[in-house]
Structure formats: C-alpha cells, structure tokens
Design a protein around this nucleic acid. Sequence first.
DNA 1: AATATGTATAAGAGAATGCTTATGCACTTA
DNA 2: TAAGTGCATAAGCATTCTCTTATACATATT
Lengths: 124, 124
Amino acid sequence: MIGHIKNMAEVLKALGDEKRLKIIKIFASNNNETFCVSDVANQLDISQPATSQHIKILKNIGILEENRRGFRVFYKINSDVLAEYRNDIDELFKTTFEKCQYNFSCDKCPYNNKSLSEKSSNAY
Amino acid sequence: MIGHIKNMAEVLKALGDEKRLKIIKIFASNNNETFCVSDVANQLDISQPATSQHIKILKNIGILEENRRGFRVFYKINSDVLAEYRNDIDELFKTTFEKCQYNFSCDKCPYNNKSLSEKSSNAY
DNA sequence: AATATGTATAAGAGAATGCTTATGCACTTA
DNA sequence: TAAGTGCATAAGCATTCTCTTATACATATT
C-alpha cells in the first residue's frame, strides 16, 4: 500500500504513456518468452534504446521484472506489484472525497515512500 | 467506457501529477464552495495562472466542472466521469493479461475516442 | 460609466521527456 | 580467445511541460 498522493502521481505518470501501456500488455502476453526487447521495439516502431528507456521507467516502479536468457533479455509483469497498484489506484478514487489527513504535507505522511524504485530489483 | 490504451494513457497522464491530484482532492472537499481558484493556488504554493493551467487539463478530461459565482470561479468534481475513469482504469488492470483485439492499431479500435475533451463542457 | 476583483490566456524561460545514433557491456558461439 | 548478438547507457537534439509575469476578459460595485 503506497496510498500517498506523491507516490501515486509517480505511478500514474509512469503508466500515463501509450507506448508504456503497450509494453506492459506485450510483456503480459509473453508467458513463453516470445518477445525480447528488440521485438517490442519493432512492434512499437521505435528504436531499441527508446524501448529500453521506457522499460527502465516501468522497472523503476516495479511493474516489470528482468529475465536474462543468454544475451537476450525478456521481461515479465510482477503480478504482485501490479495488483498492489490496482488496489492503490482504486483506493485513490474511492477516497477522493475524503480529506487528506496530513493536509498535503507529503513530507509528514507516513505513506510517503521515499523511492518507489525500491520495489525494483535494480534499485540503486 | 473508454477502454482504449491511447485514451487511457491520456487520462493517466492527466492524473499523473502531484499538484493535479491535490487539486482534485481540494475541490472534492469543496461542497460549500469554500475554495476558489486563487485559494487553491495559495494552498499549492504556485501562481494563479499555473493553477488555472492545471485545472484546464483536468477539465479537458472531464473530471472538473466549472461553476462561476460572480467574478469568482469554483470547481467541483464530475462524479460520473470520476466513476467512469475508476472503472476504466480498473478494467485496464483487470485485462492486463488479455491480448489486445486490435493488436495495438489504435486507429482501428472502436473504443478510440477522438478527443476526451468532448467530455468537457468547454470542448472546442 | 468607471473601478475593482478574480480568472483565463499569451508569451517566454527553464526543466523534463522522448527520441535518435554511437558505443560499451553481457553473454554465446565458433 | 575472437567474433557475433542483443541490451543498456551516453550524448545530443527536438518537443513538451510547467512555471512565471503581463495582460485580456468577465462580473460586481460605486
């Protein structure tokens, strides 16, 4: 549960891009590891580095997990994180009309995760 | 129901900003029209024009409705649109692992709303 | 009508974003 | 060990975003 406006904004922003949403769906249908990064790049009609950069953003919020197979890298969805965000966002909508307990002083809010990238195995 | 990646990205992007999320919550608690635009600007510690620009983005996706009272303007949440987006986003998560029927050719998808701003009474 | 108040729009500056090409890195294979 | 393959990172560029100040617009008040 992140439940905090600042973090929610970060997640929503990461998801708020057409190509990244497509990347998620492509990797979601990637159970047999059919698509590697270059395949996705072709599907999206952008370069491989551009694809890697989008993937990085999705890894940073923990939604994608790396799975290297030789010199190819496959990605899959972290279902737990996905489910968590699904809940958090729904909660955000559900509590829209409830007053913020900390009056938007995000720094004082216990739900304020310093960095969402801690969810990522590639946290630095 | 928008149910389309391209439109979903637009909505998520509009919501993917800390200040805009705060604006939503502030206006959500604005039943008695306590806060006008300038009040919100003060709360967010940005200028009034910056606030108006954020509001415009939220109006464009239909989440905010204008209510002019004299020379002040108050805003309130359009609960129907909010509920719709809540559903759409939840659907997006729920169907993450389902294959896109149109193989991401958004132009062919019947759910592809040309412009979300049609939801706005200020559509142009 | 003239003035006052509050909001929206315009214009411009600086930061952030998303792309490209070039290159380095990880791993495989001959 | 050397060459090949695919991904990540670096650097640079164009575009978009978010802010500011200045100004136009809408409404109320005197």
